Simulated scan of single mutants.
Amino acid sequence: MAGDRLGFIDRIAERAAERRWKRRAAEAETTDLDQLRGRRGAARRLKRHLDDFLHVADNRLALPAIGNTAFPRPHDADWAWRPELWRGPIPEPGIASVQTQSTLGREATLFHDCTTSELTLRQIRNMREADLAPFGLRLDVFRFDGSYLSLAVDLPPDAAFGLKRRHLIRLETIVEMEKPIEIFVRLNVKHGPNVEQIVRELPLHQEEIRVEFDLAYTKLNEKRVEKLWTDIIFEGPQMNQVILRDLTFSRRPRAEL
């Protein structure tokens, strides 16, 4: 009974708040500027909470399951992760005429050196039955007068926590292209003032597209690991459309010799 009463009160409060903001929107053209400034600040604060709520709600309610973190991973993995672009909807799903260092969501940044950008980047909904990731990322490239194009994806702090040289880091993806190109992935590990880098080419001809980065071949200072990120590098991308249907990472310790 108490729960029903609280739910009823919540519904009344929500309807009152909705009416209040509907009225404020209608009055915005004539509201005193000082009052309008205060209402704008309140609206922005409310919008942040609403965006957070919608992100989580959409994650849980859409199909295929938004927010899905399930994907095949090594049985001995001690960390696994799917970035937000492939996991849930973001507030601004696309960018046209993408300028270098433009971000999409909180974790992905596109870099290029084009004089004139004829690039678009957009989060798209995965609808195929085979897709585990609810969203994909589509990159459209028309005329390309630059020398490089890369998508940087920041890994979360959990990826760096407890990282050792005996770890293997795996990246798996599903790629669709209008025409074949080469795609490379560079893993970057910042430790103190130094950055270790390992480059692998994606085996696009294979059914399972994955690469592993073996940290044993680096000079990683395990006590000073700060952050990790990857650069997905597209070679000769002009007049092409590339879709990353999924992108996942996992980490596992190498078997003791």
Rank of each mutant, 00 (worst) to 15 (best):
M1H: 11
A2Y: 12
R5E: 08
R5D: 04
G7L: 09
I9Y: 13
R11K: 11
A17H: 13
E18C: 03
K22S: 08
R23S: 04
R24S: 00
A28I: 15
T30V: 14
T30K: 07
D34K: 08
D34C: 03
Q35P: 06
Q35T: 15
G38W: 12
R39T: 13
A42H: 11
R44C: 09
R45V: 14
R48V: 15
L50Y: 14
D51H: 11
F53K: 05
H55L: 12
A57E: 10
D58S: 13
N59S: 15
R60E: 08
R60K: 02
A62I: 15
P64A: 10
P64S: 04
A65T: 05
I66L: 04
I66F: 03
P72L: 05
P72H: 05
P72I: 13
P74D: 13
D78C: 07
W79P: 11
A80D: 12
R82E: 02
R82D: 01
E84K: 10
W86M: 01
R87S: 14
P91M: 07
E92D: 10
P93K: 00
G94Q: 10
I95D: 01
S97L: 11
T100V: 08
S102H: 08
L110K: 04
F111T: 12
H112E: 11
H112N: 01
S117A: 14
E118F: 07
E118Y: 08
L121G: 07
L121H: 06
L121I: 07
R122Q: 06
R125M: 01
M127H: 11
D131F: 01
D131I: 04
L132E: 06
D145A: 06
D145K: 04
D145C: 10
D145Y: 13
D154G: 06
P156D: 05
P157Y: 12
A159V: 10
G162Q: 15
G162A: 10
L163Q: 07
H167V: 10
L171Q: 14
E172T: 15
I174G: 09
M177W: 02
I183H: 02
R186H: 01
R186M: 02
R186P: 01
N188G: 03
K190M: 12
K190V: 13
G192V: 15
P193T: 15
P193L: 06
V195A: 01
I198M: 05
P203L: 08
Q206L: 15
Q206K: 15
E207Q: 09
I209K: 06
R210Y: 09
V211Y: 03
D214N: 08
A216S: 14
T218L: 06
N221H: 01
R224T: 14
K227D: 03
K227Q: 03
W229D: 05
W229L: 02
I232F: 03
G236M: 11
P237G: 00
P237T: 12
P237S: 08
N240D: 12
V242S: 02
D246I: 02
D246R: 08
S250F: 14
R251A: 08
P253C: 06
P253L: 13
R254Q: 14
R254P: 06
R254I: 09
E256C: 09
L257A: 12
L257Q: 08
L257I: 03
